[in-house]
Simulated scan of single mutants.
Amino acid sequence: MLRKKKAAEASENINNVTTENTEQNENPLADELNVNPQGETEEAPAAEAPQLSPEEKLKADLVSANDKYLRLYAEFDNFRRRTNKERAEERQTAGKDTIAALLPVLDDFERAIKAMETATDVIPVKEGVALIQNKLKSILTSKGLKEMDTKGTPFDADIHEAITSIPAPTDDLKGKVVDELEKGYLLNDKVVRFAKVVVGA
């Protein structure tokens, strides 16, 4: 009987220890997940962003502004170089269309010179030269060139260059162009060559 009683007590002690361990380890992940006894998960406090001092903030703004300035300067420099290159190319080819249009006139002059070497009649040669001249004038007119009409017009220093003055043949020619020594030309209404004239005094 004594042995049975001791065995029963030992068995009861073992059951008590097992029950306590089970209650303590009922949820082994509870501590890691910060679970409270009611089963609600507690969030870990978020890490706060570091606060910059006024000096550090100013330094950061300065670095950002300097970076933007360098980028803008690089873009402007590239634009300037590209524009200069395009302008240089335009200057080199500005007269390309006009020169190409004048090449047929040059060909006509070469043919006329060859014809004059064996020509026995002057009249056909003169007619050929007149045709070439008219062709040249037509091409230049199509490009915006215009002859000045100066004789009998009032002297204008903006378009005329007075070579000399002579007594006016009539009173109505005083202060006007009496004679023209060299034609003046306008290109799209802008003077490309002043007319050299004689003015009546």
Rank of each mutant, 00 (worst) to 15 (best):
Q24S: 04
Q24N: 06
N25K: 10
E26F: 11
N27I: 07
N27T: 07
P28V: 14
L29V: 08
A30T: 13
D31T: 14
E32F: 10
N34L: 12
V35C: 02
N36G: 09
Q38G: 03
G39W: 02
T41A: 11
E42S: 05
E42D: 14
E42R: 12
E42H: 06
E42Y: 06
A44K: 15
A44T: 12
P45I: 12
P45S: 15
P45L: 15
E48V: 14
E48A: 15
A49N: 05
Q51V: 15
Q51I: 14
S53C: 09
S53Q: 08
P54W: 01
P54A: 07
E56I: 11
K57T: 10
K57V: 05
L58A: 14
K59C: 02
A60W: 00
D61I: 02
D61K: 03
V63A: 15
S64H: 00
S64C: 00
N66C: 00
N66F: 00
D67T: 05
K68G: 01
Y69I: 06
L70S: 12
L70P: 00
L70D: 13
R71Q: 14
L72C: 01
E75W: 02
E75P: 00
F76H: 06
D77L: 09
D77K: 09
D77N: 11
N78E: 10
R80M: 09
R80T: 12
R80H: 07
K85F: 02
E86A: 10
A88V: 05
E89A: 11
E90K: 03
E90I: 05
R91V: 01
Q92L: 03
Q92D: 04
A94N: 06
G95E: 14
G95L: 14
K96E: 10
T98K: 05
A100S: 14
A101S: 09
L102H: 01
P104N: 05
P104W: 01
P104M: 02
